[in-house]
């Protein structure tokens, strides 16, 4: 598919990017740190008249900014929200985004929005539905999107396949990219007693276009996808493994709560870069 008009910047986005968060924007604009690319949360910038949007415009003048959304509700049985998609498309064109990503989940049904990423059963009906919706979105954007494997705190007996089979079918049939969130993969495996290696080895590597790395939190009886601390060692180990398997997609450090200084995120990104360069050696030192 075509790229966004005018999106032919020299991106240099093979190195690790950082999630763009409001507390860091001023520093980024004033000091222009050597960060290869950012990922912005689409839903925060849909109103083009706001200060936030103006700041994003300024950041995107200097850096590539990918868009990562939560509001598309790809898995919902409601009709796609064309007004929302129109806003996303306009934003993407304005900042010349290299790609758009969304989650394999649903956030709304019957016109009501949860504003959380809710889990789908791994059924053929859900696969067929998601494939159709992703194709509609890609047709509307004129561009392939990336879909992210989501954290799920519930598993359903109505599921007819594993999470990996679910992903495989969707990626191939919708002809879209995968934003592989290794933290989500790890959390799901621990929370539901699943073998993370089965998950990792079953993923179609050629579909991976981006990798997410985030911190999680230990809660009584489960791991929470909290995005509020450093990436944990088991997730770094998965990252080393996926790099050793030859995956070249860029990674991104996500941090959404208790946001620390930008330097902390840059250190996390640097660690990812070291693993990217030499995954076997670095994995051994973890």
């Amino acid at each position: 598919m075509e790229r966004w008009p005018g999106a032919e910047k020299p991106y240099g986005i093979n190195a690790t990017g950082i999630g763009l968060r409001h507390p860091h924007v001023q520093e980024i604009l004033e000091t222009r740190p050597p960060i290869p690319w950012f990922e912005a949360l689409t839903d925060n910038y849909l109103n083009p008249g706001s200060l936030l949007a103006a700041q994003l415009d300024a950041v995107s003048d200097a850096y590539p900014v990918a868009l990562h959304g939560v509001g598309m509700s790809l898995g919902s049985v409601d009709p796609l929200d064309r007004a929302y998609l129109t806003k996303v498309k306009a934003l993407a064109a304005r900042i010349k985004t290299p790609w758009i990503s969304e989650h394999l989940s649903f956030t709304s049904v019957n016109g009501l929005y949860s504003h959380d990423l809710l889990p789908l059963p791994f059924t053929q009906e859900a696969v067929d539905h998601l494939v159709d919706r992703i194709k509609q979105v890609q047709d509307f954007f004129g561009e392939a999107i990336l879909v992210e494997n989501a954290t799920a705190y519930l598993r359903f007996s109505s599921s007819e396949m594993s999470e990996v089979e679910f992903l495989q079918q969707i990626l191939e049939r919708a002809d879209c990219g995968l934003l592989l969130d290794l933290t989500n993969l790890y959390i799901n495996s621990v929370n539901h007693g699943e073998n993370v290696q089965d998950l990792l080895l079953g993923i179609p590597l050629g579909r991976i276009r981006q990798i997410h790395l985030a911190g999680h939190e230990h809660k009584p009886g489960f791991l929470l996808d909290a995005h509020n601390n450093k990436v944990a060692d088991p997730v770094w180990a998965l990252y080393s493994q996926i790099r050793a398997m030859g995956v070249v997609a860029p990674a991104l450090i996500e941090w959404d709560s208790d946001i620390p200084a930008l330097s902390v995120l840059r250190n996390q990104a640097e660690r990812a870069n070291q693993i990217t360069v030499d995954p076997i050696l670095t994995a051994g030192s973890l």
Binding site: T123, E125, A126
Partner: peptide
């Protein structure tokens, strides 16, 4: 349970 019922019940 079909997808629509799943989603309505869960939300």
């Amino acid at each position: 349970m079909n997808l629509a019922t799943h989603q309505a019940n869960l939300l």
